[in-house]
Write a protein that binds this DNA or RNA. Structure first.
Lengths: 344, 344
DNA sequence: CTGAAAGCGCTTACAG
DNA sequence: CTGAAAGCGCTTACAG
């Protein structure tokens, strides 16, 4: 005999009463409850999740879907680990467990998510790596699973999301560079359909316009978000007839290749070419000169994501009356030595 | 009506036959099976995991326990993401899903694991961040959950494990440095009880002995595995009465602080002080001069971990007759510019 | 080859 | 306040 039945037998009461006592139902004699709780500890009882889920139709767990592809691995640095800790700090207050669901790189993300949802091992989902047209959003909406996405999609505000402040960063980076008298400023964005690329580019254009600077399509460099991509971006930069004096990068991994290419051309980062990166990461601290970039708290971002998820879960809406959150996450400038006035 | 009952109703057969057809049991008419499979696709049927787990007592999922503490996040770089992709490449062949279980930093790892095991959401576990005396090993052994650990523990070979080749790396690093005529070589290890520290130190001592070099306790620097720790290690190095000409680091994060401290003291890395790191990571490529270190394939390591786990799972032992694997994972030297003969 | 039935461990109306 | 019973969705001996 095992499980709740064993406990009931041991205490000589019914399994119903044991269950009610364990679950904090009000209609249980306090004396009985104490005995049950003590026996549970004594016998090391833990509720079987399968039995509970089957009966209740909910799991007490929340899923975070990530991609385990080599590209994601290379670019995410400590992003997910930091996020996870923040998520849990909030979820644990509701006794919700976080399950990280890594989509294998060979599997279609939409198929994978469908499988995980059908398995019913979580009550709600957090999606990352949101695409501009992301079929997963329709999937979850249709299946009536509460969810929030890390990153905007192109569907406007039909669901809850939090996204990094790509526009704000592009704006402030341009402000800073223009303040340092730069007039020709390049920007490096990924060549793929990923949403952040176009958002970053829009912010860049807006900021130029605000300063009365012309937009030159030649200064938009489409490059892979890798070290090699940064090297190639450097190549393109140097090949331009009228060379820019500054460049904005949307991924810090590109900075290594760019630094190397510039150094080969005898150009000093921060003096002959100003470089500003996007997110400060442990990695960017390895660069010399140190990269000027933007800081954010992954822990707090995770916490906000968790709260915005709770706000769309029926069981928790009363406690988190936020509605469907649409939030741009602010980022703070970190001054490095990688930028400065043109010509040093 | 939903689930298997809906399918059965739709096809006008019993739920038992539907289940048998879906699960590939041999005693089903081929014609019936085809109809069931077609209907399953048509109606978008996916088995409910709770029902299945409850009945079968197994889940078809494997858990990877990681720590989400800020320290782990800072030091792991792409370690887990890379590992995960390798794990899945093997697990998916057995239709096993991987669930990543992140232990919150506020929770005791042993309590967390106990909770996850009791929930019965996975059939087997992979543990990381193994301690020298790790109570989780006794917990899983006692609960009769198949598991493998990433990292040795102090219990010898009572369970399956794979660990990085700390001894080999220390040995080859010393060989290389001695070959470059270094005689006084320091080593930086973490001040905590983590197993890799003492293993690395043992390898270092063995290698010195092999070259007839004396072991000087002053040359063992206990430092935090952080940027700040590297800076402090540099301080200690410079403060030694007879300054060493080379140093081995067990975490590359320390290299930033060390580089900075050496630069402040007008010492050139690779010329005035040779530095060799442990694992090559995307980060170490950000350093200049580039760090000499050791390379491994996270994807292959993940694959081997998965195979060694399958080998201890009763359902898969026949296919993976490896027994309980105890494997030291080889690493390959990557020459950087951070070491060389003393004095340049 | 198929159907009817039992039962995995739990929660929750329902009666008392 | 407690017990007896139903049932969540599935798999699997057992009969036929």
């Amino acid at each position: 005999m095992k499980g709740i039945r064993r406990l009931a037998k041991h205490l000589n009461i019914s399994i119903g009463t044991v269950s009610r006592a364990l679950n904090g139902k009000p209609d249980v004699n306090e004396e009985t409850r104490k005995r049950v709780l003590a026996a549970a500890v004594e016998l090391g009882y833990e509720p079987n999740q399968a039995g509970r889920s089957l009966r209740k139709g909910s799991t007490g767990a929340v899923g975070l879907m990530i991609e385990s592809s080599p590209e994601t691995a290379a670019n995410s640095d400590n992003f997910f680990l930091g996020l996870i800790d923040g998520l849990q700090s909030v979820l644990s207050r509701q006794s919700l467990d976080l399950l990280v669901l890594p989509c294998p790189s060979e599997e279609d993300p939409n198929d994978y998510l469908q499988r995980m949802v059908a398995r019913q091992l979580v009550d709600a989902m957090i999606l990352s790596a949101t695409q501009h047209r992301d079929p997963r959003i329709a999937l979850l909406s249709g299946a009536d699973i509460p969810f929030v996405t890390m990153g905007r999609a192109g569907f406007g505000d039909s669901h809850a999301w939090i996204d990094l402040d790509f526009e704000g960063v592009a704006n402030r980076a341009i402000d800073r560079l223009v303040g340092q008298s730069h007039r020709r400023i390049a920007v490096a964005v990924p060549p793929t359909d990923v949403n952040l690329g176009s958002i970053f580019l829009d912010g860049y254009k807006t900021a130029l316009r605000r300063h009365g600077l012309p937009f030159d399509p030649d200064l938009v460099i489409y490059a892979k978000t890798t070290e090699q991509g940064g090297y190639v971006a450097g190549d393109q930069l140097l090949g331009l007839s009228e060379r820019p004096t500054a460049i904005l990068l949307v991924y810090e991994l590109m900075a290594i290749g760019l630094y190397r290419r510039l150094s080969e051309a005898q150009l000093r980062v921060g003096k002959d070419m100003a470089v500003i990166g996007f997110r400060e990461s442990p990695r960017s601290r390895f660069l010399s000169p140190r990269l000027t970039c933007f800081r954010m708290s992954l822990h707090e971002l995770g916490g906000s994501l968790a709260e915005s998820l709770l706000a769309v879960m029926p069981q928790f809406q009363a406690q988190y009356p936020l509605g469907a959150v649409h939030m741009i996450w602010p980022m703070e400038l970190v001054e490095g030595e990688s930028d400065g006035p043109p010509g040093g």
